[in-house]
Design a protein around this nucleic acid. Structure first.
Lengths: 148, 148
DNA sequence: GTTATACATTTGTATATACAATTGTTGTAG
DNA sequence: CTACAACAATTGTATATACAAATGTATAAC
């Protein structure tokens, strides 16, 4: 992987930037593995995230603002991400009756079904990614990440 | 930051996905800080990375393939990233005389000068990002990241 | 020498994202 | 009730990226 290629051969880079670059490269690797796990389902990571958030709402509809709070990305994308999911039939979107500025977004039966298949592959991807880390490692990593 | 909002309130997420999401969120935070540090210079993170790689060559020209090996992104982008840098006058690009399939890319005096200004701001950004981490933390983090 | 293959880069297309501007709706001050 | 501000979402524009296809050049087979 790139991490070795770029980082491990360049020990002359000072600790701070080296660590941050390293983190970015690991993230790129994770992203790539996730993306290819989802590719057979023809869905992007962000679209997958939106579906998961919607499922987590357990029927309670989400409007764009609340969806957005739970996502990394920005509002302007959220509209278009939902557009994509809509065209796949995985969500529906209705104008909120009590406040017509808002929209209510729900995951459909189809969306839940598709998500279930994706879950299985994502779990495999997860395990593959962390195969060389112990539970202790993961806890330690979490603690360190909390300091950012 | 989002990390708190999304992760710290959802301890019911199992350790492995929680850690990976956490890492992604920290990476997003880092990216955002870097991007805003570079914004006054009107340059993207990837363009900045290309400039740094070119400077690291110390006059030895790079072709696209070697540039690409050192980057996270894919070849097809590299052409267009160099296009942007070219239009800013930060690099020049000539067809390699010995092998006209290749191109030779060099950082210009202007590029070096601009890069020097950016370096200063990026170092500030680096320090800001890791302000709550000790040297010990950073070393530990590096070790853990090596296991990916 | 012509054809085929491999190499290095570029281009086309679709998607994702950041940021700013815009649309449509609601609430409120006068 | 009208004007204006605030809110929620959408749209426009520019850039970045992934993937596949295309271009142009060099090398090899015959």
């Amino acid at each position: 992987m790139n991490v070795e290629k770029i980082i491990k051969t360049e020990t002359e880079i000072p600790l701070i930037p080296r660590t941050l670059i390293h983190l970015t490269l690991v993230n790129a690797k994770i992203t790539e593995i996730f993306a290819s796990a989802l590719k057979p389902h023809d869905i992007s990571i962000q679209q997958f995230n939106v579906l998961r958030i919607l499922r987590g709402q357990k029927g309670k509809p989400s409007n764009l603002s609340t969806l957005n709070e739970r996502m990394v990305t920005k509002m302007s994308n959220t509209t278009r991400l939902v557009d994509k999911l809509l065209s796949k039939g995985y969500v529906d979107r209705i104008v909120c009756p009590s406040n017509r500025r808002k929209v209510e977004i729900n995951i459909t039966k189809d969306g839940l079904k598709a998500l279930k298949f994706m879950d299985a592959e994502m779990e495999k991807a997860n395990d593959f990614i962390v195969q060389d880390l112990t539970e202790q490692d993961l806890k330690q990593l979490n603690n360190l990440l909390n300091k950012f």
